[in-house]
Write a protein that binds this DNA or RNA. Structure first.
Length: 241
DNA sequence: GCGACAG
DNA sequence: ATCTTGTCGC
């Protein structure tokens, strides 16, 4: 586990954060097919918070894309770098997630984020942002439709319907379990929507959510418990003479 | 102005 | 995200 400082140039205000998104958005790559599902490695990232104690823990878990076996994992903890503001989630999660990815002993391959990529008010969600900063192919798989609309896909696993911002398709509502609420898939960086959906289906042999996010979720919660729970190190109290 | 709103 | 036990159902 590694400890992360908040970058000195990290945005402080919502206006600054939106300006960063508007600036970085031009660097998103949307014309690459991305890695084929079922090959190489796929990495899930997730974050857990203790707002009262100002602690955030992130986890990155690398799976073999063919077997879904865990082949590597890493965690990082830090201070909360931004409040939760819809549309600015990335500023709350990214510093710690980057540290967890950096701590991995091997390349992550495709990164699966808990949230959105293109499906974002300014078309630059967490998955897009993480992709631009790392250069890695990324996708977003979210549990809620945010502000977007969709028609219910057919009941069978694999069915999908466009996720719409007005008339623009920004992602897909994808059924990963028959008869269960869909997940909401969008492109992050260096991959396409069909590939993102195929990866999502390959990662959901048993549950609604991808194995990547399930493993990362469990690991970052454990890292948070260990960081704030009994036996955790306390920083030396600052004082003046 | 008010409400909704990824995690 | 997080607060939180049992419970209904396959």
């Amino acid at each position: 586990m590694t400890t992360v400082p908040i970058p000195a140039d990290w945005p402080t205000t919502e206006d600054e954060a939106r300006a960063v998104q508007d600036e970085l958005r031009a660097r998103v790559v949307l014309d690459e097919p991305g890695p084929p599902p079922g090959t190489g490695h796929v990495t899930g990232v997730d974050v857990a918070y203790d707002d009262a104690r100002d602690v955030v823990a992130a986890a990155a878990v690398v799976l073999d894309a063919a077997t879904l076996d865990v082949v590597a994992e890493a965690t990082a903890v830090g201070r909360i770098s931004f409040p939760y503001v819809p549309g600015l989630l990335a500023f709350r999660e990214i510093p710690t997630v980057l540290a967890a990815l950096d701590a991995l002993p091997r390349p992550p391959g495709l990164v699966v984020c808990d949230g959105y990529g293109l499906a974002h008010p300014r078309r630059f969600g967490l998955a897009s942002h993480l992709g631009v900063l790392t250069g890695l192919p990324t996708i977003g798989v979210a549990k809620n439709p945010f502000t977007f609309t969709y028609d219910a896909p057919a009941a069978e696993r694999g069915a999908s319907a466009p996720l719409l911002a007005d008339t623009e398709e920004v992602g897909r509502a994808l059924r990963t379990r028959t008869g269960v609420k869909p997940v909401f898939v969008s492109v992050g960086h260096r991959t396409t929507l069909p590939t993102a959906c195929a990866h999502t289906l390959a990662l959901t042999p048993a549950y609604r959510l991808p194995e990547t996010t399930r493993r990362a979720d469990a690991l970052c919660r454990r890292a948070l418990r260990e960081a704030v729970g009994p036996g955790a190190e306390h920083p030396a109290p600052p004082h003046q003479d």
